[in-house]
Write a protein that binds this DNA or RNA. Structure first.
Lengths: 332, 332
DNA sequence: GGCATAAATTGAAACGTTTCACTAGTAGAT
DNA sequence: ATCTACTAGTGAAACGTTTCAATTTATGCC
């Protein structure tokens, strides 16, 4: 409550004011040692009265744990991430951890730098959303417990969705609607998740219909020339797209070229970002339980922190098809 | 490079390996004391060879600065925030700071808790996006240097946009298009920024046209009953909305009721969130230079950290009108 | 060559905690 | 009464840095 001086009081001062040793004060406040009922209460009262707050840096140095975890994401601006980050931050807080967030701007260099910085800062663990599958980057992290999201990197605890299943689901939905010439736009090939989605879709299409073309694009609304060209070839009546963001970009391009979705071209996306239901037309997509995944990520991480030598785990979540309005029968 | 033991080497070990005192090692590595040319190089080489990384917790305890700033936002999931957060994180990193991010879920309680936690963690400063104008919450922060974004809280450095100007701009645009009966939907009244936008707009409308109604809504796509009722009254041919998110919600509702934007009702929003241009129709809105504001926030904060006793500053940014397609002439 | 001065180097204290090893009581069992 | 076994409480070391004050070494000048 009241603060006599400007400085925050130290444990020593609390102890002196309470007439006990620092050790007792520490024990009382942390509930660790054995302290008598009334002395504990007295110490606590004095501490409150003085407005004592432990110096977490000192505690961290002494105990070697900072009560802090690092979260490394490629691009906060990608609508896929904020809700993930939010869940992670909240659950971490409930478990007594604060979150250092770093945004790596999709660059492996920034990523390496981030990991290293986090490791220097002594975070107790890291939740890492790698931009690519280049596992060399991960060395920067040293021995810090780490769980990797969305990529299947060896040597880490790993959480991802069943992307192959998702790719298949998407392709089958289009085929079921009657499409026979189907194109595929994947996310950047450096990401295993993007590759898996596209590959699985392409395979289904190849065997059960006809693969018109397959191209890839950055995780962005803006389409690259090759993608534009593929779409403009008008060779496909339906497209499975490896990310909603790209899908929305594709729909915009189609609209701009005077084509309608789904009347002229059907589109199915991936991720179910918040904008997907708001789009015109509302985007059919493959969703994954991203909030559960985020939650699982922090729990897995905390378990790893507690048990550094347990065998690594890999937990895979199922995906689902969300039907909205961007898929229809092929034009005749 | 090479790490002999599992543990990270300490400064003492580096010093011993280099055959110098810890003091010299510290000076050499931080470039602070005066060290001979060749000894410095030797120490640096040994440090690199051993893979030495300073223990930042220890450093923080000793120096009292953590090299960390806290960022407190109400809701990461609101598309207005991620880009802000991204800019803040990046500029902070360039200046040698890491960012502890907390999401307060729009609750003053969580907000108070966050501020307190950050202060305990010893962050060197805080960038705070308050959910409301209740300045009592801010006491939790103690003496930590703080800059407040988007709210005009007394006693802090403050950054915001000229919301009155924005409200006027929006109202005038609608009036210029020929509308005479105009409604206003503001964000939550607990936020001064929302009040200012709405008030300024309402005033202009009252004097230069006719204020059909004025209601408020949470920062959300979902509209509250009073808002729905106001819109459904069909008393206004145009609406100025205090936030794009709400505006998009309003447009959806209008569409659902069979009304067209802008043919039947014109809408103008606020914030220019990333979705605004993607909406159907693309949303006309008032934009503010949010990235410059974010950048300014960290610079202001760093200045405040360096000069705790300088007088408080308040920096106000101009806003602009972005014309897209959600505004048209009134129906006749 | 000697002296003053500056540069390089060092030992040790200090930052605020936690925790180990110990002492002093207290109570129950014999 | 004595011994045992706890429980309460304490002093001091340790965590990895930075930095002060003191010391040693080098440099320049007459």
């Amino acid at each position: 409550m009241s603060e006599t001086s400007g400085r925050r009081p130290t444990l020593k001062e609390v102890a002196r004011a309470a007439g006990v040793s620092v050790a007792s004060a520490s024990y009382a406040i942390n509930g660790t040692g054995s302290v008598g009922e009334q002395t504990r209460e007295h110490i606590l009262a004095v501490a409150a009265q003085l407005g004592y707050r432990p110096n977490l840096s000192a505690k961290a140095m002494k105990t070697g744990r900072t009560g802090t975890i690092g979260l490394v994401v490629p691009d906060l601006t990608n609508p896929f991430f904020p809700s993930l980050a939010q869940v992670i931050i909240q659950t971490a807080r409930q478990r007594g951890y604060s979150v250092l967030l770093t945004d790596t701007e999709g660059s492996p260099d920034a990523e390496r730098q981030s990991l290293q910085l986090l490791s220097e800062r002594g975070v107790d663990g890291v939740i890492w959303f790698p931009v690519s599958d280049d596992s060399a980057v991960g060395e920067a992290i040293g021995g810090t417990p780490t769980v990797v999201l969305d990529r299947n990197l060896a040597g880490y605890d790993v959480i991802h969705a069943d992307y192959a299943q998702g790719g298949e689901l998407a392709a089958r939905r289009l085929i079921a609607a009657g499409h026979t010439r189907i194109g595929v736009i994947s996310g950047p090939v450096a990401a295993s998740s993007a590759r898996q989605r596209a590959q699985a879709a392409a395979e289904v299409i190849r065997t059960e219909a006809q693969l018109a073309w397959q191209v890839s694009n950055a995780f962005s609304l803006d389409l690259e020339p090759a993608v534009l060209a593929a779409i403009d070839s008008r060779d496909a009546t339906a497209i499975v797209v490896g990310a909603d963001l790209i899908a929305i970009g594709a729909i915009r391009h189609l609209h701009a070229s005077g084509l309608k979705v789904p009347e002229d071209v059907s589109i199915i996306g991936f991720d179910d970002i918040p904008w997907a239901p708001l789009n015109t037309p509302p985007l059919s997509t493959i969703e994954m339980p991203s909030e559960e995944m985020a939650l699982e990520a922090v729990e897995l991480l905390l378990r790893r922190i507690a048990q550094p030598d347990e065998p690594r785990r890999r937990v895979v979540f199922n995906v689902g098809l969300i039907e909205r309005a961007s898929v229809g029968p092929p034009p005749r």
